[in-house]
Design a binder for these strands. Structure first.
Length: 821
RNA sequence: GCGGAUGUGGCGGAAUCGGCAGACGCGCUAGACUCAGGAUCUAGUGAUCAUUGUGAUCGUGGAGGUUCAAGUCCUCUCAUCCGCACCA
């Protein structure tokens, strides 16, 4: 018998598929489309890791499964190829970032092919190629034209290690998302994309994304951070200001205000403290706050520090004066950078007032309480209650007062309803070389001038110096100095490049029309495929890539480039691959190399193991013994199939005359049903595989003298069902069965509900809810018949001897429960 | 603190509608074949007790509840993981 040698058959079929262009996207436009997409990788120098293998295995099963089920499948792959590591390699080892990246891209591509993934390589997209970034620039200009790209000077996040600014989404707990360095504040003029214009639509759109994990939707909602409240204007008479707004979600507590707090960076602070006793101290404090890292400034356990400016503000409704403070716990970039301090009804204000001896005024009493007891307050009261000490609003509930006071403020011109978002505009400038150049020049006469679209792409120059200190693009005179597209005079090029998240925010659209030289994609091509039916990747992009992509899609929708306004119909986030309970990492020395596993067992084993060992959305702890188990299973499949090659070839007639044959036939149909549902709809690859294992066990247990027809059919269909999971071994076996064409072009087997029906079923007999007996009855037996038959059985009679039957519950086809005492 | 999830044998995990808990795999035990076994095949494998066979009791983090019947539904509670967190 032929031996199972994955090391031979896998490369063999991979080259056959490559030669035949087996995975090329079909042009059969009469079929429904299915767009299966896995997040494309960053081509690091390390090659693929197990997380990639798992990600691609899931995508490949779905793509192949849909293909066998009559869909026209788009299953592309590419590389997210701009980014810092290439440039760091240039700085550290003097290599060319382009060459370094292209080499890695090629390596990753080979490894992806070696996994047997069914990508349409003709649609391969690398974001670092001029053919691609041409249109990243085009996109930037589209944003610019639509007023969605702008320059602004402001305090930004700076990563000293990466020597570049970062968007808010890219700072995690005060640390750089890429290198974990502490992020510091800098004042710089930078390019932003106006994602805040889309805050509401990005939020509302989440409700429609019912096929996204709730977790990701919650994270995005949280990130957008919509907060409805009121803006309330206080006056500062000494500055002659009538409108100094604070933002609050609790306008109902307005009468409880006992002070006002400004953020240290608030523009009014210098004017307020001028000539005041605290001027120097506060000035120092502001300087200190600016130096603080994100982490030490915003952690919730950071102590509240504040200073009295000595200035006062006037309450818009009572006309009373309250002191104005400056404190670290108020952030300039949220709301208005100013808050009203209501210690009685806000936890932070309560702590702050306690520390500095500021008055606490109760204006809301808990239900059932008659009088305020300030002295005894141990914490702020933030819940529902009745207003007191609030003028004409006394007696109202919290809810009533919120709208009444807001309304009143509007009437007197001191504020009104406002919505605030936590989401900030997307800072997209990066002071680095290996990214997409921002297509803008600065002209002394014309100012900021976009490069005309017909002059794109602005290509990255080669005459640059990588010193690790400054942006290499500033060292290229050929790049930097240019002429103004508008007036022709000398002009300077923008030397910042774009955040690589822009590159990845539209690549899924490029796949639909990857060779287009005029446009990022032709609308009709994108409309043919979009939205992505299944998008598969890690949860770490929940508020980065996935939010940016949604934003970009909405803008392109508004620009009438595309019909859909959500890019990913269904999102699947896979779990991490662990080893010995922790994340694989070089420092822990617990990395399992995919290529070593493939060398030892083959890609089919690797794929099947990652799919079988755990549910796809949960963590997967790598287990060498489990891999052996899968390898043994595939060997078992191989031997069993080889044993029946002749039989399958002969295709004997299926007779189903005896119960054993009927049993195998039923098992076969059951398996087809389960695998179809589990793999096709439920992302339950582990249970789909275990169902196939049961079928294999069933076939192996089938008696040699049994009906040959059903056996042949079962063996053949088993191979078909395994095909999406283990494409190589099944292709080999399929050809051994005598077929000329690929198993992957074959239709997915169907099942017949009628074949699932049993003639006789085992009925469980419970007495008082406990299983006491089992009895085989005709499947068609009705309630009355079942009850009668069961109660007449000797065994049952013995069991209820001496007891009174109170009740008999009959579930046809399943069980009888006799309640007796 | 807020949000999302999870908790089932020695282990990974099944159980889609409330209806035999533990499918499938790993591991383990015994046996067969074998020069050999980390190959293959056969049988067994939740715990406790009993046993010639049949069996009995307990058992899905914990405590209650609903129900003829609960891993599944309800109330409370504990633990773990992930995300966010001075957001006014």
């Amino acid at each position: 018998m032929k031996k199972y040698t994955p090391a031979d058959i896998e490369p063999k079929w991979q080259s056959v598929w490559a030669e035949n262009k087996a995975h090329q996207t079909s042009e059969e436009t009469d079929k429904p489309t299915f767009y299966a997409l896995e997040m494309f990788p960053y081509p690091s120098g390390e090659g693929l890791h197990m997380g990639h293998v798992r990600n691609y295995a899931i995508g490949d099963v779905l793509a192949r499964f849909k293909g066998m089920n009559g869909y026209r499948v788009l299953h592309p792959m590419g590389a997210d190829a701009f980014g810092l590591p290439a440039e760091n390699a240039a700085i550290q080892r003097g290599v060319n970032p382009r060459a370094w990246t292209l080499k890695n891209m090629e390596r990753i591509r080979q490894e992806q092919s070696r996994l047997g993934n069914s990508y349409d390589w003709d649609r391969y997209v690398g974001t670092c190629t001029p053919e691609y970034y041409h249109f990243t620039q085009w996109l930037f200009l589209l944003f610019y034209e639509r007023g969605l790209a702008y320059r602004k000077k402001g305090t930004v996040n700076w990563c000293p290690q990466c020597a570049t600014v970062l968007a808010n989404e890219q700072v995690e707990n005060g640390l750089c998302w890429r290198c974990d360095s502490e992020v510091v504040k800098k004042d710089l003029e930078q390019w932003y994309l106006k994602i805040t214009d889309y805050a509401d639509r990005l939020l509302e759109g989440l409700d429609e994304l019912t096929e996204w994990p709730e977790k990701v939707r919650a994270m995005q909602r949280n990130w957008i951070g919509k907060s409805e409240g009121a803006q309330i204007s206080f006056t500062i008479p000494e500055l002659g200001l009538t409108e100094v707004p604070v933002f609050t979600t609790r306008p109902d507590t307005l009468y409880g205000v006992s002070y006002m707090v400004l953020a240290p960076e608030h523009p009014l602070v210098p004017r307020l403290i001028e000539g005041k006793p605290n001027e120097q101290t506060i000035d120092q404090f502001i300087g200190q706050m600016k130096k603080e890292t994100e982490l030490s400034r915003t952690g919730s356990d950071v102590e509240k520090i504040g200073y009295d400016t000595g200035a006062v503000a006037v309450h818009p409704l009572t006309g009373k004066e309250i002191p104005i403070w400056v404190a670290n716990y108020v952030l300039m970039d949220y709301g208005t950078g100013a808050v009203m301090g209501v210690p009685a009804h806000d936890e932070r204000d309560f702590l702050f007032a306690g520390k500095y001896g500021l008055p606490i005024r109760t204006v809301i009493l808990p239900p059932g309480q008659e009088h305020g007891k300030n002295d005894e307050m141990k914490e702020a009261y933030v819940d529902e209650g009745t207003l007191v000490n609030s003028g004409s609003f006394d007696g109202m509930s919290k809810r009533e007062a919120i709208s009444a006071i807001t309304h009143h403020l509007e009437e007197v011109g001191s504020g009104g309803k406002t919505t605030t978002y936590r989401l900030r505009d997307w800072l997209v400038s990066r002071q680095r070389y290996w990214g997409c150049p921002i297509p803008i020049v600065y002209c002394d006469s014309c100012g900021v001038v976009p490069i005309p679209k017909e002059d794109l792409p602005v290509t990255l120059p080669e005459d640059v110096t990588f010193d690790g200190k400054s942006n290499p693009l500033t060292t290229s005179d050929s790049f930097r100095y240019t002429s103004c597209p508008s007036c022709g005079k000398e002009a300077r090029r923008e030397t910042d490049t774009m955040d690589t998240f822009i590159d990845s925010s539209w690549y899924y659209l490029r796949y639909t029309d990857p060779k287009n030289k005029e446009l990022p994609f032709a609308p009709e091509k994108a409309n043919e495929w979009m939205a992505v039916d299944d998008y598969i990747g890690g949860v770490e992009h929940a508020v980065l890539h996935l939010l940016y992509s949604r934003f970009v899609t909405k803008v392109l929708h508004d620009a009438e480039m595309i019909q859909v306004d959500e890019p990913f119909k269904r999102l699947f986030t896979l779990g991490m691959v662990l080893k010995d309970g922790s994340k694989m990492s070089k420092s822990k020395g617990n990395v399992v190399s995919p290529m070593e596993i493939i060398e030892k067992y083959g890609a089919d084993t690797a794929r099947m193991f990652v799919l079988f060992a755990a549910p796809a959305d949960g963590e997967l702890d790598w287990n060498d013994a489990g891999v052996d188990g899968i390898y043994r299973f595939l060997n078992r499949v191989w031997r069993m199939a080889q044993q029946h090659v002749e039989l399958v070839h002969e295709k004997p007639e299926v007779k189903l005359e005896d119960s054993v044959a009927q049993g195998l036939n039923r098992l076969l149909h059951q398996t087809v049903k389960k695998v179809t549902i589990d793999a096709g709809d439920r992302y339950q690859f582990n249970t789909a595989i275990s169902a196939i294992m049961e079928l294999v066990n069933g076939i192996n247990a089938y008696p040699a003298e049994g009906d040959r027809g059903v056996l042949a059919e079962a063996v053949e269909k088993m191979v078909l069902m395994l095909a999406p999971f283990v494409p190589h071994i099944t292709e080999e076996l399929w050809h051994d069965f005598g077929h000329e064409s690929s198993v992957h072009k074959k239709s997915w087997p169907t099942y017949d509900e009628k074949a699932l029906i049993l003639d006789e079923v085992e009925i469980v007999v419970q007495i008082n809810g406990k299983v006491r007996h089992k009895s085989v009855l005709p499947a068609t037996a009705d309630k009355a018949m079942i009850e009668e038959t069961i109660l007449a059985e000797e065994k049952v009679k013995a069991l209820i001897e001496g007891k009174t039957i109170r009740k008999v519950v009959v579930v046809p086809g399943k069980l009888v429960n006799i309640v007796a005492q």
